[in-house]
């Protein structure tokens, strides 16, 4: 039964290139299929990881060097967690400003939407800075899975 199950973990490491983010999509989909995670949950994680990784890759580095970004997924006791570790500039997405929506097309400015998606679609968004690294963790409880066979 679920309480006796060990946590399921997997890791992918990408570089700070937007095109490398496709590897994370494949990784999340594969992890989800392997562990019976509902498609809408995998999609929510993929969307939120897209937002967070895009921030890191687009704004996290002042140099042009190649950097490694680590994404770890953990499924434990009906809770799915993704942890992003990067060596970019300190940035706490949990304290970022949310979008101020303008309902007129011509005056609507983009920005702030990604963090709004993360805060809304996930149950938790946690940030820590340790040893020169940003560690961002997003968590979602799979309510149905708690009562399932796994």
């Amino acid at each position: 039964m679920s309480l006796a199950d060990p946590p399921k973990k997997d890791v992918v490491v990408i570089t700070n290139a937007i095109t490398d983010m496709a590897k994370v999509v494949e990784f999340v989909d594969r992890f989800g299929a392997t562990h019976g995670i509902p498609g809408e949950v995998s999609n929510a994680f993929n969307l939120c990881l897209d937002e967070l990784l895009n921030n890191v890759i687009s704004y996290g580095y002042d140099d042009r060097n190649t950097h490694e970004i680590r994404v770890e997924l953990t499924m434990e006791d009906g809770v799915l967690t993704a942890e992003i570790t990067d060596d970019g500039k300190p940035f706490d997405p949990s304290s970022a400003k949310l979008v101020v929506a303008d309902r007129k097309l011509h005056s609507r400015a983009p920005g702030g939407l990604g963090i709004l998606f993360v805060k809304t679609l996930m149950d938790e968004l946690h940030y820590a800075r340790k040893g020169g690294l940003n560690i961002v963790r997003i968590t979602k409880r799979l309510r149905e899975a708690r009562r399932g066979n796994r």
Partner: peptide, 10 residues
């Protein structure tokens, strides 16, 4: 479509 991110909305 499966989803659209903030970059797509932009």
């Amino acid at each position: 479509i499966i989803y659209i991110s903030s970059a797509g909305f932009r």
